[in-house]
Each structure stands twice: as C-alpha cells, then as structure tokens.
Design a protein around this nucleic acid. Sequence first.
DNA 1: CCACATATGCTCGATAAGAGCATATTTAGC
DNA 2: GCTAAATATGCTCTTATCGAGCATATGTGG
Lengths: 351, 351
Amino acid sequence: MNMELSGRRKPTPDKSQRAPEEERDYDPSVGIGLNAAIVAVSDNEPVALVVRAEPDSIGATDMLPYGPFNPRAHRTLESGLRSWVQDQTGLELGYAEQLYTFADRGRQPEPGDTAPHFISIGYLALTQAIGHHGLTDGLWRSWYQYFPWEDWRRGRPEIIARDIEPRLKAWAEKSSGVATSQPTIARADRARICFGLDGTAWDEEKVLERFELLYEAGLAEEALRDGRPTAREWTDRPKLGLPMQADHRRILATAISRTRAKIKYRPVVFELMPDEFTLYELQKTVEAILGPHLHKQNFRRLVEGAGLVEPTGDVKTRTGGRPAKLFRFRREVLLERPAPGVRVSAPPSRS
Amino acid sequence: MNMELSGRRKPTPDKSQRAPEEERDYDPSVGIGLNAAIVAVSDNEPVALVVRAEPDSIGATDMLPYGPFNPRAHRTLESGLRSWVQDQTGLELGYAEQLYTFADRGRQPEPGDTAPHFISIGYLALTQAIGHHGLTDGLWRSWYQYFPWEDWRRGRPEIIARDIEPRLKAWAEKSSGVATSQPTIARADRARICFGLDGTAWDEEKVLERFELLYEAGLAEEALRDGRPTAREWTDRPKLGLPMQADHRRILATAISRTRAKIKYRPVVFELMPDEFTLYELQKTVEAILGPHLHKQNFRRLVEGAGLVEPTGDVKTRTGGRPAKLFRFRREVLLERPAPGVRVSAPPSRS
DNA sequence: CCACATATGCTCGATAAGAGCATATTTAGC
DNA sequence: GCTAAATATGCTCTTATCGAGCATATGTGG
C-alpha cells in the first residue's frame, strides 16, 4: 500500500491540508447506514421502536429505523438520523447518542467480495413511550423478545440453563480447532463469564458480548442466514430470541449495553420518564432496564440525596396505599457536579 | 425523502433482506477514513504517535496515522486500521478499540457542498512506548502539547486562568444571539463545568467537551482554519495547544477521554506497561494519564487487593532507596470477576 | 371502622476509601 | 563503616457509603 502519508520523508504537495486524503486509493462502493435503537419504557417494559418487514415475505424480520447518510442533505450524522427516523416513524427524537460503527464483512446476507459493503453507524435514542398513535409506522416491542436471556426481573431466566448453557458447553468442547496458544480466552471461559455459568456473577452490561458469543457459536438465527460454518446444524434448535434484519440485533444489543451502563452514572433515566412521576415509578423504570429489584428505601435516599429530583407539591392518589409524592427531574443538577446517575448495585445473584 | 423502509405499508420486493439499502438514494462521494490515536507512556509522559507533515510547508500540522477503509482489502474496520498503522509507522498494534465516528460538515478545511465528504472512524490503541527505532515513521509526542490545559500533574495549569478563562468569559458574554429559550446549557455554565471555573470541580474525563468548547468559541486554531465565524478575531491570540490536521485533535481528545475513563474500571493500564514493573512505576503511569497524585499506600492496597498483579519474586534495585518488588499483570483476573480497573478518586482539587 | 397496601423516615452494621504513622531496606556522602 | 536521605511496604484510624431492616404515616376497599 502507499506510504504517502509519511510526510516527513515525502513532502505533501501544496494544498497540504486536504491532499493526503485525495491522493489515496479509496473505494467508493461503501454505503453508510444510520441505524437508530430507540428505547422507551412502557408499562414497566423496556421497548424498542422497530419497523416490521412484510410479514408474509420470506425471512421477514424486524428492523431498526434506518437510512443512508447523505452528506449533502445532512449536516451531521445525528441530524441525518433524526430526519430518517422522523420520515419513517413520525417520531421526533430527543436524547440521542452515537453507539458504534459496524462494518464486518460477512455480517450481512449474501456476503462476498463482489457485494457492495455497508457500514452501519448505530445510535441510541431514549424517549418517552408515546402510544402507537403519533407513529406513522413502526411499533414498540419489548427488547427482551430479542434477548430473552437478558430478562432477570423474575430471577434467572430459564432459557439460560435450558437452551443456552448446554449448547455453549458443547460448542466449547470442540474447541476452535486453531491452536490456542494465543492469549485468546478459551470458549468455555467466555461462556462462563458472559452468561454467569458455574457460579460466576451475572454482569448485566455484557449484553453485546453475550449476543456476539451466541452468534459466533451459531446459536443466533442471523448466523445461519450469514452462512457461518457452525450454523449448519442449527435448524433443529429452538429460537434464541427473535432475529432482526442485517446486523440490527447487534446494534440493539449495543444499545442495551450502553443504556444499562449509562443509567448508573448519568441522569438519563429521566429521558424515559414523563415530566412528573413518583419515586416508585422511577424505580420500576430503572428495574425494567437493569433487571434486579432494588431496595426501595435506599433508592429513595439515593435519588433524593443526589439532588436529582424535586417534589412538585402534588401527590398521586389511587396507588393502592398512601398517596405518593410527585417529583420532577431537577435539570439544574446538570449544572452542578458531573451529574451522577442512579447508582445501584446488583443484589446477590439469585441464580 | 423516501419512505420505502416502512415495510408494513409498502412491501419490500422479493429479495427482502438486502433490498431496502439498494433502493435508496445513496451518495457515493463519502470516503471513510480510519484514524488511530496510539497512546503510550514514556518516561512518565503520556504520548501519542503522530506523523508530521513537511515542516516547511504552509499549515503543516501533525496528524494521526490514518488511511481509507477499503472493504475489499480489509475484513473489518479494525483490521484495516492495523494494516494502515503498520504501513505508515511500522508499528504492530496490540490493544485497540473503536472510539467514535465523526462526520460533521465544516470540520475540515474548505468545506462546502461541492467538496467530497469524509467520515472519520477514530480508534484508540494502547501500547508500550517502544523507542523511535522500530518506527519507520512518526514520532511520539506528549499529548499535553496538544492539550496543555489537561496537564494537572503539577497542579492546576496556568494556561486556564491566564488564557482560557478570560476568553471563554468574554465569549459567554456575547451569548449565542439565538434566543436561548431552549434547554441548552448557557455558555457560561458550559465553560464553568468544563474547565472547573468558579470553584466547580475539575472532571478529568471531560477532555472532549473542553476541546469542543474551545473550538466552538473559536479558540482552537482548527476553528480558524475551518472558517468558523467566531474565529475572525483569533489571529492575535496565543496558541492553545498545537493544532492537528483535519479533525485529528478532536479524535485525540476523544482518545484521552476514553483512556482516562476506562483505566478506572478495566485493567487497561497494563497495556502500557512492560511485562515486569514496580508498583510505583505503575502508579506513575496512572498519574501520567489521570493527572493528580495518588496516595501511594492506598494505591498499593487497591492494586494488590484486587488481585490485578502478582510478584515475580525479583526486585528492582538502584531505585534510590529500598529495592522495589517487581510485579506482573495477572491475566487470570480477566477470567474472574468482571475485571476491575485501577479505581482512584481525585484528591481535593488543588486549584 | 378495620384490615391492608403502599409511602416514607430513620437507624444500624458491614465495608470500602482516604489519610497518616511506623518500619524496613537500600543508596549516597562523609 | 556510619549516618542521613530516599524509597518501599505494612498497619491503623477515621470517615463516607451502602445494604438491610424497623417503624410510622396515610391512603383504599370492604
């Protein structure tokens, strides 16, 4: 390959600032897709906004709202994303942040050297769960339908011990063939760490690692579609979550990872809440995302003590007991300290 | 724009999986650049590997190793990056992770609708500081040369009170003109939070936010180059750090942010260390990156207590005092708990 | 009016973190 | 060789934080 960037040896020409890029051999057959994982919590269920492919077409799967990045029409990646989401679903995004850029060859159907390549730039958006009215298209679907093993709200999900653990163990047995002198972590160890097997603690943030492991082991339907070698014996296996189009499930997994991580150190839960809410509703929203149950009194102390909320003065009655005070988010905290999140520690794992 | 993705309304054609992307209007004039912020610590100085443009050419600036992504030659983004770095500098990368994808129009010289657009995918690599031998090109340069206000190792850097604070205050005075009914944070507040003004605590992780603020205020040389409106009165101002080519300084800022954050919760310091090291050397490396001085005894307790290291049995003499035990990284921790980092808390800010 | 459910305030003990004291072992200078 | 200085290392003490439980307040439904 060329070395033209080694400016010290070989001076770049006059128009120095741009020059290097223009001189390179560059492949124009790369498309750039913007993908949005739009997350909300509706009735204590964390949901993502998906668009359905035609149900009766073969291989129809859900997909995230997405569209190509057009540098002429879009000033920034994020504005391009917002415009696509608006067009496809009618939703106007609030909070949004970039997640990751995916480009693995082979992570799309019909791979091959001749196929044009696509890069997916994934975004995470947090919003309130507005009803299906207001949406021109798309629907809210629980993210646990795509990742049932992530739902620990009622204890350790059965699917892990029943469907995942035995298959991962089998996959780990026939090790990767390649000599493993490398410092790569052994398959069995990866499985144990990712899924909390053999007494290892469950880390709710490892959503992406878990999905990647299942994909690699040929246990995600997308692996079959992509023609991965290990996927041949797959057909008789139970579905491990709903598949999605292209690499969208991977993007959604990244979104869940990020959401679970960020909720702990930045006040992002409030993007998911209505203007006024009770502390218990707030707690339930956090639990919907993180899984385990939290200690109610300590949660109160934490949230109030951090100055994240202020009482509105009103109360919410008909809660089945003593009326709950209503609170609102104190936006001012963003101006104070480096605004903390809802720090919670996982309870002793109930496996 | 088109709505062809709304599959529920308008069925996608037969080859359903690929179809939507191919039908879109997609602009092929987008180049994809891979940029590497390669970080090491040499003699207690955090350094990045940069390639110098010809010194006597006009506007010559440092740049990060980079090259275009070529989907035919590169299986993944990361492998493409490794290959570019190897070609340009002779360095073989170890640890690498993706940082962010930048694409703002206007964040490059000669912007305009006719100019081709480039997307920069930034990567962070951590490595040992090998000598300049072994490098075919490029040099290690302290990252504090690009961001002098980030160097808190000898207390609060003077440049903040002398050069930055007054200019940011002036910039905040003539507010953004646009009516600020929006919940956007006021300029003065942003400056205060980013740079720890008026008694606000310094957050060493806000490296990117600080640089973005300086750019926006027209105080970064790149802003002048990009023809930003506020940059007109800039010429008589002192340089605030060395500028870099294109948006490379922004990528480096992101890399520093990520490094500072990650070192606290993942054992990534060890990527920067030789195989054997003393605890004091380890501490000095952490301090080079994070800035403030740490309490030596507690640092020992923390690192040893977390099981991150094990003694080799040897000692290092001629340290100027009692010989220090040598340690090595216990790679096994990666197989145990979700492997913690070197948790450190900032000492009371010495402002 | 009572049983019950939820909301909310407060305390207690375990643990981890910040800070300092004390001791060990070397090098440098006389 | 002896001593001062420098660094390494172990231990203790205090304080902040967190998990957990008890107690009380104030509604709803029968």
